[in-house]
Design a protein around this nucleic acid. Sequence first.
DNA 1: GAGTGGTCTAGACCACCCA
DNA 2: GGGTGGTCTAGACCACTCC
Lengths: 238, 238
Amino acid sequence: MAEPLGFRPLYRQVKAIFVRRLVDGVWAPGEGLPSEGQLAAEIGVSQGTVRKALDELAAENLVVRRQGRGTFVAEHDERRILFQFFKLVPDNGERRFPDSTVLSAETGLADAAEQAALDLTAKDRVIRVRRLRSFETVPLIVETLSLPQRLFPGLEAGPIPNNLYSLYAARYGITIAHARERLKAVALNADDAGLLGVAAGSPALQIDRLALALDGMPVERRLSLCLTEEAHYLSDLR
Amino acid sequence: MAEPLGFRPLYRQVKAIFVRRLVDGVWAPGEGLPSEGQLAAEIGVSQGTVRKALDELAAENLVVRRQGRGTFVAEHDERRILFQFFKLVPDNGERRFPDSTVLSAETGLADAAEQAALDLTAKDRVIRVRRLRSFETVPLIVETLSLPQRLFPGLEAGPIPNNLYSLYAARYGITIAHARERLKAVALNADDAGLLGVAAGSPALQIDRLALALDGMPVERRLSLCLTEEAHYLSDLR
DNA sequence: GAGTGGTCTAGACCACCCA
DNA sequence: GGGTGGTCTAGACCACTCC
């Protein structure tokens, strides 16, 4: 007669405690967590329960476990971004990371698409960064990022590094946990085509990405136009 | 002084036994496995070890666990394919499954691309199926499948259902475990554009899929051209 | 050798499904 | 009510890392 869906396993409650600590920055990226035994004693559950909670966090790439060393908060280093968040790879040759040239960085009122994606109102402001990304001087991607200004005050003023997710974490305490991408094939307009050095109307892969923080809050929208003559978007279906 | 990398946990050996049974068809799709306790007794390990092996198989979508009922061999029913293998979803409205019209089905010598993808030689033959797929009579995808003839004898002769993966399993005992897709934006040639009812040169999303069997053997190559005016390819990055 | 995560076991109990 | 998977515990031992 009790609630049929009111059951929540102990290890998930423990996991929620840990996620909270990650969101609050109690455990910062790169830092080592206490050992399983210490955590178990502190919370008052068995080591096996702590282990199951940490295993799930590791499966979600929020922590990294290293046998013999310990459990560490995941960082957005180049390698991780390259494999988890950057799916465009050259047809021939190794997975690489493109350079970025910032074309503009400014603020403005959120448009309809930005409001919908980022849970904003017409009164909210966004920071927009437009940049060109290249593989060894060959332009490949032109993209526009939209960020809620409230979350990233002053970002548009400072230098904008290639690896933004690392900046979000270090300077604003926001960790990107995962992202949802929507892909379409489109014809380039004259502006974008010019930037990429191809004819207007050329086909390009449009990637509309929404990146979410640890707690599921939408944090960044990114609209990328990619040339796919010599590269492809890799998707593994398991 | 022993081999430093020669360690293989017991539960992985148990898992290998189970995968073998899936590959050999000892456990067929839809069938229920013996209970954890029975498997543990049969193999001579603890129930916890069997559980960990089954958990990994469940994470790979090879089996489905249902509390209170049992563990079952995964099937390629419509729902599973729709969520695991079919990433093209309408911009508005529900995830749907397109109808298929077979344009041609014939055999021939494997070309260079097919040889490379499917591990074949120039002497090997492939079955090629070309079909048009539509959402409610609106053509959306034109695709060409290539299959090693050796693995699917007679497939080109019989009726070709919409859900091919289910046919592979039922008639040929081959289970598709996962797939790798490479996406590009291309301009449609006159033939494909005509089939899709758009102008030649229109942009389309090209999906080059390689599907692998349980044991990792490449089994099907599929080259799809998709219109993305009112649909998109959905990719979740976690 | 000390400390960490990883494996394996055994047993108890819980939530769920079905007859 | 009996069977299934799911959770939780406690303890032993193993593999790996670092000092």
